[in-house]
């Protein structure tokens, strides 16, 4: 059986074909090596980097944009959003600063993606 999927690692969007019967599975269609890793993880445990914003208190912006420092399992995305909604950021941050340590209890960090100063 072959499975088709689109690699989302870059805007080229290669159509990958995964031959599931071959051992180890054979992947074709990728224009660069990243496609292989993508296809493998997509079959075992699909993950996505989650981006969103957290509410702030006494900062210059109402929201601070954030991202996970690593891809989150797809099935955990809605739980991750629940957690993000609970956060209130109260200190000034720069891009790259950690907003939540060990987010979701999986060792994943939530980091700020822009500078947000005090009012």
């Amino acid at each position: 059986m072959t499975k088709k999927m689109v690699c989302i690692e870059c805007p080229k969007g290669c159509v990958l074909e995964v031959d599931m019967d071959a051992k180890p599975v054979k992947i074709t269609g990728n224009k660069c090596p990243k496609g292989i890793g993508y296809a493998l993880s997509e079959m075992e445990d699909p993950r996505r980097v989650l981006t969103s914003s957290v509410l702030t208190e006494s900062l210059e912006l109402k929201l601070a944009p954030v991202k996970t420092d690593r891809p989150v399992p797809k099935k955990e995305l809605s739980r991750a959003m629940e957690e993000i909604k609970k956060i209130r950021l109260k200190r000034a941050v720069s891009a790259g600063d950690i907003v939540a340590e060990n987010f979701l209890g999986m060792g994943i960090k939530l980091v700020a993606t822009r500078e947000v100063g005090l009012v």
Binding site: C10, P11, V49, T51, S52, S53, P65, V66, K67, A95, T113, R114, E115
Partner: peptide, 22 residues
């Protein structure tokens, strides 16, 4: 544009919109 997908060509890294601006 808080999502990722910016900068792969220029910075050779995947950035969010605000990070690219930063």
């Amino acid at each position: 544009c808080v999502h990722t997908g910016f900068g792969l060509e220029y910075f050779k890294e995947v950035l969010t919109g605000p990070e690219y601006a930063d």
